[in-house]
Design a protein around this nucleic acid. Sequence first.
DNA 1: ATGAGGGGTTGACGCTGCGTCAGGGTCAAG
DNA 2: CTTGACCCTGACGCAGCGTCAACCCCTCAT
Lengths: 254, 254
Amino acid sequence: MLTIGQLAAYTGVTVRAVRHYHQIGLLPEPERDAAGYRQYGATAVIALIKIRSLAEAGVPLSQIGHMLGADAASFAQAVQKIDDRLRDEIERLEASRKQIAQLAAGDSLALPPEVVAFLDRLREIGASERMVEAERDGWILIAARWRDQLGEIMPAKHAQLDDPLMVRLYQVGSALLEDGTVDDPRLVELADILAALAERAPPSSEEWGDDVAHDLIDSLLVEADPRSRRLLELLRERGWGGWSRPERLPRPPG
Amino acid sequence: MLTIGQLAAYTGVTVRAVRHYHQIGLLPEPERDAAGYRQYGATAVIALIKIRSLAEAGVPLSQIGHMLGADAASFAQAVQKIDDRLRDEIERLEASRKQIAQLAAGDSLALPPEVVAFLDRLREIGASERMVEAERDGWILIAARWRDQLGEIMPAKHAQLDDPLMVRLYQVGSALLEDGTVDDPRLVELADILAALAERAPPSSEEWGDDVAHDLIDSLLVEADPRSRRLLELLRERGWGGWSRPERLPRPPG
DNA sequence: ATGAGGGGTTGACGCTGCGTCAGGGTCAAG
DNA sequence: CTTGACCCTGACGCAGCGTCAACCCCTCAT
């Protein structure tokens, strides 16, 4: 007769595991001795080894009971289901590993490579690190909503950076982020640039559609830096509302 | 401003998940409106998307907090650790799949192929299915203790089956398992065969060592079939104790 | 005004497979 | 008699939410 510790040692499991199997009814409770100790015989050892070999093969404990009492056909069927489950799980983990590998490289936290390339471009034209981070956050919002269309959007954004006005926009923006105050004159310059750009390329509401995402991007600006309120005000003076998708405002009377 | 449901919809997570992230302090609790509803802004959306992209890459929630605030170096290091974890997990699951494939084939529940082959041999020489199951259980005990030595043990066992006496042993045993009674004369024949076999090949205690496993195997016999008590008694009369590893008994005085 | 339906709120249990205390009793040896 | 190594039961903890329960809030149609 074996104690629970000897049983556990013989079969290579922990005492706690054995008690757990009792608790869930997988292994029947054996007789007790005078002191209340469980006493195991050979059949218990065999049952436990069978349980472990199924468990180690990835069978959930809740199914092992059925499988041990099943005929060959339904056993094989159950095995097939387990194997499918394992395959799915492995696939999911391998997908995770690919994701992880992506994350290891650069800004790509949640961003596709086209956008990462764009951010790198920004650094090249002299945008500060804080500016790039702000842009990155904006692109996270955009990517969440229009991930599939990024392939069409990004080339246009790249092209815009050939425009010296756009370059100036990011440079002034970077400088402001570093040390600007609420009444910095460069805010006016920024507003002028934005108005000029909006004038040049009027928003085509068709392709973007109106969406909560634009509001989010606008509010991101405000949340990121309180000075942006002043900027939006200056933009309104110049006849433009919004920022991520500027709209022509009705000219105020007078 | 977004409600929790809108936030969840935008980022593709469940409402419950968002609340969970609040609970564990991963996502800061936002302001509430007059009714107590949570109100989310753009930064919350961005934070949540970052969290999800790490979580989907297999990063445990408990680590995501650290990683979001880490510099590039320790971020990369953390990523490495996650990747190692994922690799281990995948390996474990693939090992499980191999086990499962083994289980799908035959008796192999917890048994290596050499033993399965031996059991098949038993069927060929006319052992009944119940006899084979009893043997299989015995081998489960043996394999648990001497798995590494099975490669040396099994050839000898195979060879023993060339002995007509051994064949007769299994055949009589099979017959007894089906319909024998406690005073069946075939029990005597069985005892004679066992004694003769023990005489012929005395146990070499060196190679097996004395062990709890033998006691288990002996007790397995008794637990499996109460008639075996009579058999052991007959064996003792013939000067042999035990069964899995018979020992010469001191001849009783007189 | 009222009721229905579709939001939101907190709180708590459930799942898997045990690990790990806590707070005891038991047993063999020195 | 003490010590140390076992055994016992009971209960919380773990990851990442799913899923009630019981209640509040808002809006729209009747």
